[in-house]
Design a protein around this nucleic acid. Structure first.
Lengths: 254, 254
DNA sequence: CGTTACTGTGTATGGCATACGCGGTACTGC
DNA sequence: GCAGTACCGCGTATGCCATACACAGTAACG
């Protein structure tokens, strides 16, 4: 699974970084790694993550199932490569000279926009720390945005992970809600209303007083606003917290 | 998948809330829902989530594979039930009278402790809003801790989700790191060091100046502290942000 | 006491990732 | 030019999985 056949690195990582040399000994390759990844992404975009099987991808790429394994060591590796390609690199972002808050906020929003482009891929069972190329590029961009916060390296890394996870959770949850109402062929607010109705039916006010107070306020009945509202709420909370942190301990730079 | 056979609720949810009546017409049941769930949890605890298959669970419970389907509509439903049982209800927590920050912090720590008891289950592909019994109990407890913050219902719900996702991400990531070094049969700091070495090998300082500055600081080389440190960092940041929100005047709008 | 609804279970289906080995191909060194 | 060799695409096979379906046995109900 995680062999070290060449430079001491797992195969899928070397693939992603383009470190795999092809000595050109055998016949010409009929496919390309990028072509396979694109085919897989096409299927996932159209039919969801669960439709991405090796045979489906092979058919889409115009080859036999087993041919894929000449390019990719396993399906999980393919998923990782898909995720990294789909993420792309970070766009040009405002530098830290305009204030870290604006810079970091822009980074977070850009990351969210990127993830929202292929939210289904966030359901992939991918594991491990950021090591794929575009992932590392995003990390670099985030670190850059944090200049002037006076945080040490460890804190900055923690913060990258914290913010990434926040964005990831939000995008994934929003996407799942959207998927749910798509399957139920109702509107989004209908799904939310249904959720409120379930809660009302299942819980009694005696045991769940706080919840029922909220239910009676009609939280799940009115308009649900833009999905952005919740995202803004969480993000601004985080940034406010960071502001407090910086004010408390902030040396200008390390 | 999500039928409404009885009271207009999906079957797995009714099962979890114990709303399923058994008319007692046929032969006595040889198994019990709880017994099946426990067997499944036993397997997962011992061998990980991927070892939880219907046939393994059936063997552990002392029945044939198909017998399980008399108790549970699908494997996904079983996973949901497992998650809810394993979570349990929230413990007794300090009330909001000692200040919302202490109360909410205690809630978060308790949630983390609970999730850390069975972190492998967080990898299950479960979807949807909190609707299972213990899940709702945790929600109620969280809402209670937020009394006195002056937030409206929508904000409180958002906050529950925000904090839950934070805890979930942290526990899951920590668990994955632990699993990684368990598989590599090295120490945890060795895995972190290996990660740093990979980054150093794959990136050049020209393209990744910020990252390299951090790498040269030896962030991934020294002691990694308690895993609690990162958790505290994120949590306190969030709480500081909430403090700012509350001080500013609480509810953003209605 | 027959009817009926529910029980556990054996078998079958269709899908999946992937190990293995084959015949063919294009470059390498002579 | 020619063997050797390393790689190509792919057919086949293995073993796992969730689950649909049918069947025979069982216990309550009328």
């Amino acid at each position: 699974m995680s062999e070290e056949p060449d430079g001491g690195l797992p195969e899928s990582i070397e693939l992603a970084w383009g470190l795999r040399e092809r000595p050109g000994k055998g016949p010409k390759r009929a496919l390309s790694l990028k072509g396979i990844i694109d085919a897989a992404v096409r299927i996932g975009s159209a039919e969801g993550l669960e439709a991405v099987s090796m045979s489906r991808v092979a058919a889409e790429a115009g080859a036999s199932t087993m041919a894929l394994y000449r390019y990719v060591p396993s399906k999980n590796a393919l998923l990782s490569l898909m995720l990294d390609e789909v993420m792309g690199g970070p766009p040009r972002l405002p530098g830290p000279e305009e204030g870290w808050r604006a810079a970091l906020s822009a980074w977070v929003w850009a990351l969210r926009a990127t993830m929202r482009r292929n939210p289904w891929l966030l359901r992939a069972p991918i594991t491990g720390p950021p090591i794929m190329p575009n992932n590392v590029r995003w990390m670099e961009a985030g670190l850059r945005a944090m200049r002037g916060m006076g945080l040490d390296g460890g804190a900055r890394i923690s913060l990258i992970i914290l913010l990434s996870n926040y964005v990831r959770s939000e995008v994934r949850m929003t996407h799942e809600l959207a998927t749910a109402f798509q399957e139920a062929s109702t509107s989004e607010s209908e799904v939310v209303r249904g959720y409120g109705a379930m809660l009302t039916a299942l819980t009694d006010p005696g045991r769940f007083p706080e919840l029922h107070a909220i239910l009676e306020d009609g939280v799940f009945e009115g308009a649900v606003g833009t999905p952005d509202d919740d995202f803004v709420f969480g993000l601004e909370t985080l940034l406010d917290g960071l502001e407090a942190l910086v004010r408390r301990g902030g040396a200008p730079d390390a």
